[in-house]
Simulated scan of single mutants.
Amino acid sequence: MIRLQKFLQECGVASRRKSEKMIREGMIKVNGEIIQEMGYKVDPQKNIVELNGKELKVNQRKVYILLNKPRYVITSVKDERGRKTVMEFIKIKERIFPVGRLDYDTEGLILLTNDGELAHTLTHPSYGIDKVYEAEIEGQLSESEIKRLKEGVELKGGYKTAKASVRIIKTSENSSRVEVKITEGKKRQVKRMFKAVGHTVKTLKRQSIGPLTLKGIEHPGAHRFLSEKEINVLRMYIKKKASFRSLPNGLSM
């Protein structure tokens, strides 16, 4: 017996957080009955679980795909407003979903998979997964502004970010290119961090997630499957992060 939201993850329906949202909204039926209870458990061998009238089955083959998301593309399985989503760049029979998200006008690296456990660990803030971004901002950062970003800056609403790494790549009279490494994933976090120190982000691109990079998919819209070696490296990276923070690694190695 497994929790319903975990079953949905393993079917490649969505991440755990989105699966829980689907349950709360009454989108899931078990044996013909709508289930909205978070702790509800199912037996994949005996129970019939449906989403929008379609029976769900646990994926046997795990799929891991890196995509270089272009700007003005939605990080979602579908969009009610009809905008282009990341799913339109990948045509496979397996049901997959994006891990985390990038803003509509942000480009760069995103992972798509049907591995719910791995998706959960990559997006859970407790694991502190490194994410590197390259931002083009208006103006130039002062030494005091760089220090504030590195030590953690208070965002609108009172939240203070964790420590970050900041490196100036290039400056010109009116703008700067800056590399930022963070271990959190608050909504529009990098843009809000720069805004907090008085600078507007003109363009933003995610370069890496942990050991995963844009190598081999440099062109926006390009994608590729992770190799078995890369999957193992990613799992070991997560295990190391979990060990450092005294957390369960959450993965079947």
Results as ranks from 00 to 15, higher is better:
162 A>G: 12
91 K>T: 03
156 K>G: 11
197 V>E: 03
111 L>Y: 04
100 G>D: 11
20 E>W: 06
134 E>H: 10
34 I>Y: 14
146 I>C: 09
34 I>L: 11
178 V>E: 07
189 Q>R: 04
199 H>I: 02
246 S>T: 06
52 N>A: 14
186 K>F: 09
12 G>L: 08
159 Y>G: 00
156 K>R: 15
159 Y>F: 15
43 D>T: 03
114 N>I: 08
231 I>K: 13
34 I>M: 06
222 A>M: 14
210 G>A: 07
39 G>Y: 03
140 Q>A: 10
33 E>N: 12
211 P>R: 13
95 R>G: 06
229 K>W: 09
22 M>H: 12
29 K>C: 01
111 L>C: 10
175 S>Q: 07
17 R>H: 10
88 E>A: 07
253 M>C: 02
166 V>Q: 11
175 S>E: 14
147 K>Q: 15
193 M>C: 02
135 A>Y: 12
74 I>T: 09
165 S>G: 03
32 G>H: 05
35 I>N: 03
180 V>Y: 01
88 E>F: 10
242 A>P: 06
191 K>C: 08
173 E>I: 14
187 K>Y: 15
207 Q>E: 13
240 K>M: 15
128 G>I: 06
125 P>Y: 11
52 N>S: 14
134 E>W: 13
231 I>D: 01
10 E>M: 15
180 V>F: 10
192 R>D: 07
64 Y>F: 14
173 E>Q: 15
54 K>V: 10
166 V>K: 07
35 I>W: 00
134 E>N: 10
45 Q>I: 06
178 V>Y: 01
33 E>D: 06
39 G>K: 10
43 D>L: 07
60 Q>W: 11
154 E>P: 01
196 A>Y: 01
85 T>D: 07
119 A>G: 11
20 E>H: 05
112 L>H: 03
185 G>E: 13
24 R>N: 11
32 G>T: 03
67 L>S: 06
185 G>P: 13
108 G>Y: 12
10 E>F: 13
118 L>F: 08
108 G>T: 08
10 E>G: 08
250 G>C: 00
205 K>R: 15
127 Y>H: 04
201 V>K: 02
69 K>P: 13
85 T>Q: 02
96 I>E: 01
244 F>T: 00
82 G>L: 07
41 K>A: 09
49 V>W: 02
128 G>V: 07
113 T>H: 04
208 S>T: 11
198 G>I: 05
14 A>L: 05
220 P>H: 01
103 D>K: 00
8 L>N: 03
133 Y>C: 06
137 I>D: 04
226 L>F: 05
107 E>F: 05
250 G>K: 02
159 Y>N: 01
45 Q>T: 05
26 G>A: 00
92 I>E: 00
42 V>F: 03
142 S>C: 13
75 T>S: 12
155 L>F: 10
6 K>G: 03
212 L>E: 09
190 V>G: 11
188 R>F: 07
87 M>Y: 03
95 R>M: 04
109 L>W: 03
156 K>E: 15
5 Q>H: 15
45 Q>R: 12
27 M>E: 12
215 K>D: 15
160 K>W: 07
237 Y>R: 08
79 D>E: 12
203 T>K: 13
194 F>N: 02
9 Q>A: 11
142 S>F: 09
72 Y>I: 00
140 Q>E: 15
53 G>I: 04
232 N>S: 15
244 F>R: 05
